[in-house]
Design a protein around this nucleic acid. Structure first.
Length: 288
DNA sequence: GTGATATGCGGAT
DNA sequence: TCCGCCTATCACT
């Protein structure tokens, strides 16, 4: 489930379970063994998320940088920790909790300079209060790259992934292939606001729900979605199924190596809608 | 048992 | 634009 909301939830959970405690670090699988040894028995100050990146603060001096990629997962529990099962890259054990990390794209130990370098290449994160959407707009408004690609570029916006990009473009009736420079500032502002709203909701409920209340009757008549991402959505991974709004079959193609989904009727190619006006009149509809 | 699949990303071409 | 890598799970044989 790792889009930005997952990482912010993880940071909160790690902070809650380990902050202020002496933590034993190990790598049952072995691939983080030397690094784990270097920080074993030190104090975990807390955890913080920047986009899809997680940074564990060890003594305000070293940082464990985790990127989950597609496969990475944390599991938590209360002591005593069970025997490690499967490929556990990192195990943390504190007095109140243990945590296992499997399958991360990255699990590394960073110093200050490396941490700063990492953060410097990330765009604004809609989930962070210090985020500046103008930094993203500076890139988008000059780019011929499709907006669907820009939304996945972590140096443009940090934290949105394949689900949020597909869903936010649907909610604003934007053609995914529209070049960034053809968006109006108003449309960009609306997309940013909506991303903030949707991702905060994702942090709150732990899943990605994007369907507006007025469209819930469309999805209410059938079995709840059991897709692994767990949420109720308009287009993500619904290729060939009827659009919840207009019944047109949802389209799909691969763009920049990732699966893209959209409704050809609600998000027509050609002229940008430019209005930022969502599929319905409501401004910040709660998806619940 | 095998193969397909996945919410990601970096490096080579 | 393609490839490789990380891992668990599920639909198949």
């Amino acid at each position: 489930m790792p889009e930005g909301h997952t990482l912010h939830r993880l940071a909160a959970e790690i902070t809650e379970r380990f902050a202020g405690d002496v933590v034993r670090f190990s790598s049952p699988q072995g691939r983080f063994a030397a690094e784990a040894k270097a920080i074993d028995g030190r104090t975990l100050v807390g955890a913080e998320a920047w986009g899809k990146h997680l940074l564990l603060d060890v003594d305000d001096e070293l940082w464990v940088h985790v990127h989950l990629g597609i496969f990475g997962r944390f599991t938590f529990g209360e002591p005593p920790a069970p025997r490690p099962l499967g490929q556990v890259r990192l195990r943390m054990t504190g007095p109140r909790a243990w945590a296992d990390l499997r399958g991360p794209n990255a699990c590394r130990l960073l110093d200050d300079g490396q941490r700063d370098a990492l953060l410097a290449r990330l765009g604004p994160d809609p989930l962070r209060d210090d985020a500046d959407p103008d930094r993203a707009w500076a890139r988008i408004s000059r780019s011929r790259t499709p907006i669907a690609t820009l939304l996945m570029d972590q140096s443009v916006i940090a934290g949105a992934g394949n689900i949020y990009r597909a869903e936010v473009l649907f909610r604003h009736q934007v053609d995914p292939l529209l070049p960034g420079r053809e968006l109006s500032p108003q449309l960009w502002a609306a997309i940013w606001d909506d991303l903030r709203y949707l991702m905060r909701d994702g942090v709150r409920v732990g899943r990605i729900d994007t369907v507006r209340p007025e469209h819930e009757p469309e999805v209410a008549g059938r079995a709840p979605r059991v897709d692994r991402h767990g949420g109720e959505v308009y287009v993500y991974r619904r290729a060939g199924q009827a659009c919840h709004v207009c019944r047109t079959p949802v389209a799909t193609r691969v763009l920049a190596g990732r699966n893209l989904f959209w409704c050809p009727t609600c998000q027509p190619s050609g002229a940008p809608t430019g209005s930022g006006k969502p599929a319905t009149a409501s401004s910040h509809p709660d998806p619940h």
